[in-house]
């Protein structure tokens, strides 16, 4: 086809458009220039050291990590149970239930944020870490359900039934047979929930109590002044963390699958 080289050139151009700005963030994080802008004057780790010495940023990291981990644990537990129901059983109203489970994606995040905030305020729940956690659970849940469901389809129900017919209780069968088999799906769901929570800003700005910052809201607050090399360094650390974790996850999944195949 004659158009093919053209399409290929276009694809390269579009991929460059998607990645170049992010690559520049990482590049400028190592800039020795004190204004953090072009032209680069040298290579330096000083901005990463500055991050480490900045109490506000270290606190934001602690908040984001705690929030991400708790969100992942709660969301994955709820999501895996729901996915099991959707994949393993047929029941009336299944389609509507599936749609309801992904509803938090379909409602604009701003609307979700406002309604949860006002509702919990009415119940006298102030802006707090708890509100932040509830918010993150509700908007990560649909992603967990979608990812886990897609992986669960491949896990056969036969082993669980065999265990049950050999006298295992449903609880025993679940923890000793089913859970180990679906572990990759659980991990994938948890990782997804963690990265979504860790990256979120839209809802977080509504829910966070005054004085509490997550890494994205900290970056947002720092942007009010002007872009600084510290922001680029913080961005670079975040990029490495939230792209590194899933990539390691994929690599581990491939490795264990390859080992099992031997």
């Amino acid at each position: 086809m004659r158009g093919w080289p053209l399409i290929r050139a276009w694809t390269i151009l579009v991929y460059t458009f998607m990645f170049l700005p992010v690559a520049v963030v990482i590049l400028l994080a190592f800039n020795a220039n004190q204004f953090g802008a072009f032209p680069m004057t040298g290579f330096s780790f000083r901005w990463f050291v500055a991050l480490w010495e900045n109490d506000a940023i270290v606190r934001a990291f602690q908040t984001s990590l705690t929030l991400g981990l708790l969100t992942a644990i709660i969301s994955t537990t709820i999501g895996v149970l729901a996915s099991l129901a959707l994949v393993r059983y047929d029941f009336p109203g299944k389609n509507s239930i599936s749609t309801l489970l992904i509803a938090p994606i379909l409602v604009p995040e701003v609307v979700l944020a406002v309604s949860l905030l006002l509702f919990l305020q009415m119940l006298n729940v102030p802006k707090s870490f708890f509100l932040l956690l509830m918010g993150h659970v509700i908007f990560t849940l649909p992603f967990v359900v979608l990812v886990v469901q897609a992986r669960l389809v491949a896990v056969k129900k036969d082993y669980e039934e065999a265990a049950r017919s050999l006298g295992a209780s449903p609880i025993q069968a679940f923890f000793q047979i089913t859970l180990p088999l679906i572990m990759p799906a659980v991990m994938a769901g948890g990782l997804f929930a963690f990265t979504i929570s860790f990256d979120d800003i839209t809802g977080t700005l509504f829910w966070k109590p005054g004085g509490v910052e997550t890494v994205p809201t900290q970056i947002f607050a720092m942007l009010r002044n002007s872009i600084s090399p510290e922001i680029n360094a913080l961005g670079a650390v975040m990029i490495m963390l939230t792209t590194g974790l899933p990539l390691i996850g994929i690599a581990v999944a491939r490795w264990s699958a390859a080992r099992r195949a031997k």
């Binding site: 400028l28 800003i201 994205p216 975040m238």
Partner: peptide
């Protein structure tokens, strides 16, 4: 990959490109 890079970082990255002291 872009899905795993925070929205705020992808947005602010354009300041490095198009800003007054940008690329």
């Amino acid at each position: 990959l872009p899905f795993w890079v925070s929205y705020i970082i992808r947005t602010m990255s354009w300041i490095n490109i198009l800003g007054v002291s940008g690329a």
